[in-house]
Design a protein around this nucleic acid. Sequence first.
DNA 1: ATACTGTTTAACAATTTTGTTAAACATCAA
DNA 2: TTGATGTTTAACAAAATTGTTAAACAGTAT
Lengths: 215, 215
Amino acid sequence: MRTEEALTEKLIKEKARILFFQKGLLDATTQEIADEAGVNRALIHYYFRSREQMLETLLDETLLEKKEKVRSILVSNLPFREKIACYINALVDYGLAYPYLDNFIISETARHPEKIRIFCSRDRIKSSDLIREQLAEEIANGKIANISPEHFMVNLSALCNYPLLAKSVLQTIHGMTDVAYRKFLNERKRVIFRTIFNEEMPQHLANTELTKNRL
Amino acid sequence: MRTEEALTEKLIKEKARILFFQKGLLDATTQEIADEAGVNRALIHYYFRSREQMLETLLDETLLEKKEKVRSILVSNLPFREKIACYINALVDYGLAYPYLDNFIISETARHPEKIRIFCSRDRIKSSDLIREQLAEEIANGKIANISPEHFMVNLSALCNYPLLAKSVLQTIHGMTDVAYRKFLNERKRVIFRTIFNEEMPQHLANTELTKNRL
DNA sequence: ATACTGTTTAACAATTTTGTTAAACATCAA
DNA sequence: TTGATGTTTAACAAAATTGTTAAACAGTAT
């Protein structure tokens, strides 16, 4: 049945995503994935041929989704600071959903350097190029200290992504519950803006839902 | 022979470190480790009983080494900005030697949450507590925008560690050779200081070797 | 030389994990 | 009902990986 087929396939992908990118079990076995989805392990091979291919599909789809989300913000014609605020919100929010996605890619590319091209192939334009002019303008106007677009974007990614990657460690060191950690990450959105611009994030941008509507 | 014993054991640990923490092959097999060291695989069991126990030893030793390096800077009585400059230099330099150490811990703790305690057990004092007073003073004097010690330290770790973790991806996106990437990371030391303090890193602190001598 | 110690090796056993296959099952159309 | 199609399952085979063991080896002291 067509609808059922789509359902099972989707179910497997969804549960695999949770294991890989949410729980960080980057070497989850086909059995574990099948268990999580409550289906027979052979179905993974039925739908995806091999564990390898399932992973490729999964990464491709997930990355595309994230990149589109993020890219649309950078190419928008919002004023620079609003744009960056949106970017921070999107990155942190996406990271809250799939904290281990970046970690997964880092591990995969270390193991299989030849696959880096696959992950990066879709990005014909470097994200640092998308903010080059606006950043230059900001610097020229003395609104921000001199910095290259590359370092600026690395700073931004680092500040947003690292606390998500290091979740378990940070949570333990500071003795935070899951709720407290989520709160900490939401605080961070404003902290990051302040760190980058040395200035308070405008109140009307501080709420994710609102910023979404601005696009 | 006593000296030989020490040699082989050390050799295995050294090569395992390279595989795990330098090359990022976080699921390297005992065979791969043995090959890298040019010894028989059974020796790993002879010296460490199991792969598991070797890993534990390795992590314990490596982390202790790094933490001591880093801790000594934070407890020193250097002026705040010099202290942070040293900290940045140390973190980036250590990361250049073992770029995947953090990534490894992140993956391990995701897989075995019960082990987090082990990794964190030695830290009786949170690093954020070590800079609390100095940071408060800095803020009181209006030398830096208001920020909690926790967020300050997370910012610092993020800015230093993330580019090391994401090495392969960043290198590919920006088409950098290994040499270029190393240069980029050294530039970053000053970029990070500027991002944190919104002010140039003093020239005399910019060189790692010099900062080492100041302790 | 010989016996003793600790080190290293090859061969083996046990386990885990992936991938395959044939049969059972369900749904739908003729 | 029967047959065709696609889905799901259990059972099996193959490969990879860890851990064990007995024997070979090297050096040292007696």
